[in-house]
Amino acid sequence: MSNILEVKDLVVSFHTFGGEVQAVRGVNFSVPKGKTVAIVGESGCGKSVTAKSIMQLLPKPPAEYKQGEILFNGDNILAKSERDMQRIRGNEIGMIFQDPMTSLNPTTKVGAQITEGILKHKDVSRKEARSQAIELLNLVGIPQPEKRVDQYPHEFSGGMRQRAMIAISLACEPDLLIADEPTTALDVTIQAQILKLMKDLQNKTGTSIILITHDLGVVAETCDHVVVMYAGQVIETGTVEEVFETPQHPYTKGLMKSVPRLDQDKKQPLIPIIGSPPDLMDPTEGCPFFARCEYAMEVCRDHNPSFEYMGGNQHASCWLHHPLAKASE
């Protein structure tokens, strides 16, 4: 299966008055065509920075792309000019941002915000663009789209604003959709509707999706592959079944233990991951999870492990899986 996106050895830093924040440190992953890939991990692990790097939305300075490639349909996005990126954003790659209330322009009607991308990237009249905007609002499940197209964002509920954001991101039928926590702050009923909507649209259009989320239940329900990030690095990848059923990295195992499960005793307490992530202004030379890992060894302190093949589609970055560690068992 071919990949629509490949991120190779991506390194992104932010230069601040306090020093250099090494937000993304050698990230590698790929997105197969027509599939959904989840990026999971704690706040501050580099998920959103990686997503915005794909769109080249990070301001330079303070951001700096220090190393790596982001190949979209074989072309390196990081080598593109701003003019080229303007042709790609919204047209070939769409993005649903985390907070629709701050992402939507409060002074502009929702319909105008949807038609903006259509008019920029397609050769259509304003009347045709408006008609397409109404169709998109209807497609994402907003009632009375003919009326809603002329309303402002503050006249929409939270769920409707998120649906409007999806309509904007899908206006030009992009090949890749990046959803940065699209269900944050929504109640579970609306959350389920939004996720079902995204899945239905993917089945109809064949769009590939990158879903950034903290919710492992959402990942299990909607995604095909998982990328687990920690302290700016990818520490485990695999299919949803592989990562959920047989997690290989101690951090991934900790995430699974901290989430309630239907097959567990209700009286059994959840087990949190003790400690805090490392300071990315001065990250450790060794494994970033060393200070919080119950299996930590001396080699973990000074040397960062390489990615080891676990079988199937699964890889993990942990010294426990090194051939020499297995030989000493």
Rank of each mutant, 00 (worst) to 15 (best):
N3G: 01
L5R: 04
D9E: 15
H15S: 13
H15N: 14
F17E: 15
V21G: 04
G26T: 03
S30W: 03
P32L: 10
K33Y: 10
K33W: 07
T36P: 03
T36E: 09
T36K: 04
V37N: 02
G46I: 07
V49Q: 01
A51S: 15
L58G: 06
L58P: 05
L58C: 06
P59M: 11
A63K: 09
A63R: 11
K66M: 13
R83L: 14
R87C: 12
I93Y: 12
G94Y: 03
D99K: 01
S103C: 10
K109E: 12
G111H: 04
A112T: 11
G117N: 12
K120C: 11
H121G: 02
A129C: 10
S131Y: 07
N138T: 08
I142G: 11
E146G: 05
R148P: 08
R148I: 11
V149N: 07
V149C: 04
H154E: 14
S157N: 05
G158E: 07
G159E: 08
A164H: 06
A167Y: 00
S169P: 02
L170G: 09
L170E: 14
E173P: 01
I178P: 13
A179D: 03
A179R: 06
D180N: 00
E181H: 11
D187G: 06
D187N: 07
L195M: 13
Q202M: 02
T207N: 06
I210S: 13
I212D: 15
H214G: 14
D215L: 12
L216H: 01
E221L: 12
C223F: 07
D224E: 14
H225Q: 15
V227R: 00
M229K: 03
A231T: 07
Q233Y: 06
E236Y: 00
E236H: 03
T239F: 07
E241I: 05
V243Q: 05
F244R: 01
F244V: 00
P247A: 03
Q248G: 08
P250D: 10
T252W: 10
K253P: 05
G254L: 04
L255P: 04
P260N: 08
R261F: 14
R261C: 05
K266W: 14
K267Q: 15
L270E: 02
L270P: 03
G275R: 07
D279M: 08
G286P: 12
R292I: 01
Y295E: 15
A296I: 02
A296S: 15
V299T: 15
C300F: 10
G311C: 04
G312L: 09
W319N: 11
P323E: 13
